[in-house]
Amino acid sequence: MKDTSLIQRKDGRVWNTSIVTMLIVYLCIPVAGTLAYSLCQEWQGTILPKGFTLKWYAEIFSDTRFLEAMGRSLLVSTITVVISLLIMIPTIFIIVLYYPKLERTLQILVLLPFAFPGVVAAVGLIKVYSSGPLAISGTIWILIGAYFIVVLPYVYQSTRNSLRTINAKDLMDAAEVLGASKVSAFHSVIVPNILPGVLTASLLSFSTILGEFVLANILVGGSYETIQIYLLSMMRVSGHSASAIILIFFVLVFVLSAIILKLGSWNSRTNVSKGKPKEEDR
């Protein structure tokens, strides 16, 4: 009995390892292919690429249109994320702690964007903002407006979880009994403690906006060219340059993910009561 179960377990490990290896290879192929394409002189009619070069990267970085597009994308993401945090953290805090009955409503409002794919959202937005008093389509403002809604679920989820793990209600009570007003308790006790968790959401939102295409394409298109729009037009001109852009974009996302991961582990280390106490009780 014991022997067979051991063999079974070993088989299981071989099976799981091969599945996961195949998965990694499969998921890496497109990335690897793009990387190879961005680093070769030529890849036409041959199985393997020919000639190593960095000239596509050099070209891209001296291309003002690329730099401008990148700048626009970074600008939109930064503004949106900052506004979103400034508005959403107090909002979520107030509703969770003082109006818990409204939380269900907040949840629905905030999670609705998950239900509406980009195209659907774009239809309503273009209808309202392409003419009339608020004709902001084609400008950065409509993107900020729309992306704020797009990143709501991330910001909500992480702020909510952070408030829960730090036991915000008790911290507020403690601070108030100790003589703090609500506002000073919020900024000296609540904000510093939820910041790591909220930062994770910001980075996630940031990379989501950098990769967003549908809304950018339908709402502003060429009149406010973001990195994704530029990439698509570049794809039709030079494959090598396009692949270099993709790689740069991907490295950026990779770095952001690495930061998220680091923050995540730092978060769990500083958690109030979850971590193993370092000192033993006498």
């Binding site: 998965l23 998921l27 497109p30 793009t34 394409y37 990439l231 794809m235 494959g239 991907f250």
Partner: peptide, 20 residues
């Protein structure tokens, strides 16, 4: 890793598909 790969969709994915 898996989660990160989900970022490789849309335009980049279409592009790599064509070259592969």
């Amino acid at each position: 890793f898996t989660n990160m790969v989900t970022n490789f969709s849309g335009v980049p994915l279409a592009f790599s598909y064509i070259i592969l």
